[in-house]
Design a protein around this nucleic acid. Sequence first.
DNA 1: CACATTCGTGCACACTGTGCAAGTTGCTAC
DNA 2: GTAGCAACTTGCACAGTGTGCACGAATGTG
Lengths: 196, 196
Amino acid sequence: MNQKQTPLREQTRNVVRSLLARTAIELFASQGYDDTTLDEVAAAAGVSRRTLYNFFRNKEDLALSSLAEQGDLIAARFAERPADEDPWVSLRAAFQVLEEIEIRGEQRLEMVRLLFGNETLRAGHAEKQARWQDLLAPLIEPRLPPGDGREFQARTIAATAITCLQAATEEWMRRGGKADLPDLYDEAIRAVRGPA
Amino acid sequence: MNQKQTPLREQTRNVVRSLLARTAIELFASQGYDDTTLDEVAAAAGVSRRTLYNFFRNKEDLALSSLAEQGDLIAARFAERPADEDPWVSLRAAFQVLEEIEIRGEQRLEMVRLLFGNETLRAGHAEKQARWQDLLAPLIEPRLPPGDGREFQARTIAATAITCLQAATEEWMRRGGKADLPDLYDEAIRAVRGPA
DNA sequence: CACATTCGTGCACACTGTGCAAGTTGCTAC
DNA sequence: GTAGCAACTTGCACAGTGTGCACGAATGTG
């Protein structure tokens, strides 16, 4: 009983939640983010505007809800890597999760265009990804050589890797989704750290 | 006549603009960003709310107005550096502008705390700094060795340097403004690119 | 002095986001 | 079964942001 009860509620909640998010993103992509009101989204999903706020903190969260989970997945993948592996190698492997999970082809490009096309969303997107630092830095820190300021170094490494991922994603979009994202990421890392 | 007229308007406009920004930041710092309404800011500055919008696009711009000029200053300083200097060295020198211009001591710490303390402002702050890429990348590009994808590499280098600056600033704040920001920036760069 | 341009301002409005107070539904316990 | 509990949906009212518009004042021009 206890096994079913809580998960049951939570399960339906998650289903509804992702349904709402998908409905919203579809509208955002077709009409534009600013030109879509939450009333429209609510109507399209068959709920009231007030209910939308029971699932998402604000309009931005509605568009960026997928990013939070992605951070968790990346951190989980990183944690699976061997403890003596170079952090940069582990990071690259961890980001590979996105290739496995994200929607393929045109839909993915549409989503990226949405995120980079609007100033508010671009800022929110970058900020959400920047918070991945908080998940990754504690995992990176124990792999650094002993010494002062390891926490700061770990945060910096996480932030830089995420920045390279963002730069690669933007370039990927600029090329119309025709390039290979991991390749672009590698090129970004090479530009920063030199060929190795 | 033509020489005076236009600059005259523009001059008073700039004075008023910076007065409004300073009034706003003072209120934001003392009461908090979210707990300060634009009506309050307008009243404190002796203008109407509608007039505020003649000078700033929105509430966020009112708090971040100083960042746009900083980007221009950094780019200008970068352009002054010798054309054959390593881009990373030039970038470090360009960021030095902030040390010369920004307000010293407690006031600077207060400003940084304001920017990092609020989620919206943190996002807007990061996004505005990320736009510095657009200014710096074209200056970095001609300094890279010939080959494909130089533009992408230049953007990535600019983005990474800015990220390190942000990480350094955050660490500087975390230490209560007691550390030397350029030192922290160097440490961040070392963490990413290795000792050199 | 008549005129044009610019700017500040008030007003009305659409939209976001929140607190509150209902009403509804599904589950639990008796 | 049914009484009751807890979570959820919804409508309503409201504060705050941001915008279009039009009027009036100030300033510079012929």
